[in-house]
Design a binder for these strands. Structure first.
Lengths: 366, 366
DNA sequence: GTGAAAGCGCTAACAG
DNA sequence: CTGTTAGCGCTTTCAC
């Protein structure tokens, strides 16, 4: 209980420690900052005095002169989404190990918000930025110019952008997707729906048209679709544009789209859902139609969760290594922050296809 | 392409803008900092010059003099957990609206890590801290002393601690829990399991012993248990200590504990699972025993998710308003940061009991 | 090995 | 309304 009415009891500064220890500021700075060399004797005394006074370094003042903030910026679609939450956790863990902290911003897949987020991080002078871009693979990202100009280390997270020359850490979506769809084909499916294809106003005319559209979709989404196309092609199954959705990515839309497909004269016997809400939306559609999984329609989802394995039936899913994705991203970024001048590289992580009981052979046609 | 080999192209400073505009630094500072008053004419010129030069304020230098960082610190158990991820999203949204950013740290319910996290945030001079403490309601939190001393606004998130005199935003866990258990009782259940009770080495001897243990449990966990006890008491159902788990909070442990209860001579006919993994763990136990939900055992979970409603059967759950919890916490914190001296208050949010199909009357005894 | 002094870019108090 | 000036707490030459 001090009798003063100071707004904040100020933390002692280096000068005060110096005065109390009877040495110069610089010596204290060297001791407390852990650089330069100080004689063990005075070092110990300074440390003792500092501890007694409860000295805490003023990181802001330090940042001002060093230019380092020991803070990483993370820009992703939505921290509330389990996938990104898992990734963020991985980033945080790796950052903490290196004594860095993390500033997070969500974009909701909006490029304006992404630009604003980048600006904030640049202004706050984070030492590095991990970005899951909201832009398609062939997009131009002018808001990253300043990041380059300021030479702030940047690593792309989960999504590649061709025009950005930076390290990246991604999942092998194409291969994971091909594998999942192939497993469906091996069970005898030939009518396989793909939920969530790229958002467009009208369905793709054909596979080539679709490939053109993919250029403007998120890299990860595009790759998943390419993997689907790969699997079909390998099996010699013709691509049917009516089996790929082009709706907005929310659960009700997925349900609606699947309901539409189920009404086709030649409906799908299997559904590949490339996101959790695409899967739950599809399940809802099946239920509405009174269709059972896997007897009537087989299902494969994306992203594992404790729920997936306790469903009836347990859901087969492509499990992305979220935590590892985050960790590797942070490690990669921290290496750059530490000054690594290794050539720019893209690290590709494999996803794990978890086979459970939501896939069965298609029902024999009546 | 500059021919210089400067490590970083430095951003222009206020002095440079002043020189270029032919005015004094202070005038520029006033204009760009948005304080004091400047004649419209010079103001416009300065703005033009600043824009042309690509001036960006150095927030670190600014923080050094103002003491403000426009950053909020958030300390929670695990950003990767869907509940906290949702809460964090709410905090971020509210923070952004007020032009603040968020630094997040996970504690994994470890008080050491919590103390370290607080220290980091204090050192980084965040303007306020939102904390979901890893300590029981009656715990002593010495690592918060420095927060008080520095007069850093603090708000408790999701969990109360009696010894901490700070604003808090929590869910009415007790009432939500009471309501859920009561709905089970109304269906005729009298043997209701409670998964996850507090972690202890040996089960509680009786209800009073349990109440004593609750003091050391997380506030939210304790309240859920009290709500359970309330419901039993109201219905005149004797408390059976063997129906409350005391295991570590992970899914396999939940499964094991439920399996044990199911082997009781008078096994539970309903399970109240107070966390998602407690629910999935319970479901796994039922499946292993070949028991069906809700015919054999009724189930109520905690925290809603897109999965819960597409389960077979759809799961009844207590849905916590995660996003709102986060938003309100941030708003509360920001009000303090802005200097509010309203009396310390605890805001209680109601949870929503979502009744679906996982509850049915107990099977008639053979 | 140590101390003195300059300066990071900004805000704020004070004159003019 | 505007310019001058003095720091904020630290790191970092540079002498000693």
């Amino acid at each position: 209980m001090s009798t003063e009415r100071d707004h904040r009891t100020p933390s002692p500064t280096i000068s005060e420690v110096a005065a109390a220890a009877g040495v110069g500021r610089a010596t204290v700075a060297r001791t407390l900052g852990g650089y330069g060399s100080v004689s063990p004797k005075t070092r110990d005394r300074i440390l003792a005095v500092a501890k007694e006074l409860g000295y805490r370094p003023n990181t802001i003042a330090r940042s001002m002169t060093t230019g380092e903030t020991r803070t990483l910026g993370v820009v992703l679609a939505d921290v509330g989404n389990p996938f990104f939450a898992g990734v963020l956790r991985g980033i945080s863990d790796a950052a903490r190990k290196a004594d860095y902290d993390v500033l997070v911003l969500s974009t909701d897949e909006d490029l304006q918000l992404e630009a604003a987020a980048i600006e904030v991080l640049v202004d706050k002078q984070v030492d590095g930025i991990a970005l899951a871009p909201a832009a398609g693979r062939s997009a131009q990202l002018p808001h990253l110019d300043i990041v380059h100009k300021r030479e702030i280390p940047l690593v792309l997270l989960d999504r590649l952008v061709d025009t950005v020359d930076a390290d990246a850490v991604v999942i092998n979506n194409r291969e994971a997707s091909r594998q999942a769809v192939t497993s469906l084909i091996e069970q005898g499916h030939r009518r396989i729906a793909f939920v969530w294809g790229p958002v467009t106003t009208e369905p793709a005319a054909d596979a080539d048209d679709l490939r053109r559209i993919i250029d403007h979709a998120l890299w990860s989404d595009g790759e998943r679709l390419l993997g689907y196309l790969d699997a079909l092609e390998l099996a010699g199954i013709p691509f049917d544009t009516s089996l790929v959705t082009h709706v907005l990515k929310n659960e009700p839309q997925a349900t609606r789209a699947v309901l539409g497909m189920l009404s086709l004269s030649d409906p799908p016997t299997a559904i590949f859902a490339t996101e959790t809400d695409a899967l739950t939306g599809s399940l809802r559609a099946l239920r509405q139609r009174g269709l059972r999984c896997p007897e009537d329609v087989s299902l494969i989802g994306f992203d594992d969760s404790s729920w997936a394995s306790v469903m009836t039936p347990p859901m087969s899913v492509v499990a992305q290594p979220m935590h590892q994705l985050g960790e590797l991203t942070a490690e990669c970024l921290l290496a750059r922050v530490a000054g690594s001048d290794a050539p720019v590289a893209t690290h590709v992580l494999e996803a794990d296809f978890v086979e459970r009981a939501s896939v069965a052979p298609p029902p024999t046609r009546a």
